[in-house]
């Protein structure tokens, strides 16, 4: 049985009248890439801050590596690395000095620290920028420096709090690849974001939260299995009649059909090869179409179906 790295039980956090975390519980096993998914204000960062004992909480328990986490547990803190949402480096220190400074708060031995710092610089690909000051770095490079400062001491548990916000696609891919590599090297990862495609790409298990509550938890396939829609077939066709639309609606596994702006959307629940049945229906009735394709459900649809709202409510 895998070791439980993080165990949060019935966590309650209130900001006066607002309940930021409402009896929130979760468990993360060693070696997982655990995605914490939710819209802005859902309680992801509050959960992380409580976990790190930066925030006090009203009720509940937090255990790390099987032991109760408190602000005085230096022995547990040394095993954690954090990449915060906002870049947290000193503008007055170079790339190398920043990483060396923060690594030095964990690692006392000079030689070990030196090696770790070099490893971290290589890991995030900042070899050419060692002597640069943060203000001279682009947004993507700055994010990489932020990551290097959080992981240089080779922690067992690494928390990434929305590390790809406002990052260009190239840097984003590099960051996501880096996180996968860290996981391959043995680190347990907690990854909070509201970008579902990142979670789908990275995470072995996902927890969806909203209003401080756990909405759903599981692998991405398990989560997608929780909703009615399993496939949407989209057809671009001009001048479809109501009679024909009713014939499509009558196909097996089809539970909803809509036709708007020359686009027919056929939603299916269960069944295989639904797109083939739709194509056959068009052929049998000698109806022409320009384009036909199938879309599998995303986590956004999972979120939409469970909560009734879009995940990316700010975009």
């Amino acid at each position: 049985m895998a070791e439980t790295v993080v165990k949060i039980t019935n966590l309650v956090k209130r900001y006066k009248e607002l309940i930021a975390l409402d009896n929130f519980s979760m468990e993360i096993q060693k070696g997982e890439v655990f995605g914490l998914l939710g819209p802005n204000g859902s309680g992801k960062t509050t959960t992380i801050n409580c976990l790190l004992t930066l925030l006090s909480y009203d009720n509940g328990e937090i255990e790390l590596f099987g032991e109760k986490m408190t602000s005085k547990r230096s022995d547990l803190k040394v095993r954690i690395g954090v990449v915060p949402q906002q870049v947290a480096v000193f503008d007055e220190l170079t790339v190398y000095d920043n990483i060396d400074f923060f690594c030095g708060l964990y690692i006392k031995d000079k030689e070990t620290r030196k090696k770790y710092v070099e490893d971290a610089i290589e890991f995030v690909g900042l070899q050419e920028f060692k002597k640069f000051y943060p203000k001279k770095l682009s947004g993507g490079l700055l994010r990489r420096l932020n990551i290097a400062c959080g992981i240089a001491h080779k922690p067992e548990l690494i928390i990434f709090d929305e590390p790809t916000v406002a990052v260009d696609p190239q840097s984003r891919n590099r960051i996501l690849e880096g996180i996968s590599r860290l996981n391959e090297q043995g680190a347990t990862i907690i990854y909070t974001t509201h970008y579902m495609e990142e979670v789908e790409q990275l995470c072995s298990r996902i927890l969806i939260m909203d209003h401080g509550k756990k909405i759903a938890i599981g692998t991405k396939d398990e989560l997608k299995g929780m909703i009615k829609n399993t496939e949407s077939v989209i057809v671009n066709a001009h001048g479809l009649t109501q009679d024909f639309i009713e014939k499509v609606r009558a196909l097996n596994h089809v539970y909803d059909v809509s036709y708007r702006d020359d686009t027919l959307t056929v939603k299916c629940s269960g069944g295989k090869h639904n797109i083939v049945h739709v194509v056959d229906c068009f052929a049998d009735n000698e109806v022409k179409y320009q384009q036909i394709y199938s879309i599998l459900p995303t986590l956004n649809e999972v979120f939409l179906e469970i909560t009734g709202k879009q995940l990316r409510d700010n975009e």
Partner: peptide
Amino acid sequence: IDSQANISTQGARVSITPVNHRMY
């Protein structure tokens, strides 16, 4: 300012390290 989690991001980063805060 540079060492308190509620004032600066650098402070938050320092606060989660295992260092003795007062000595720091």
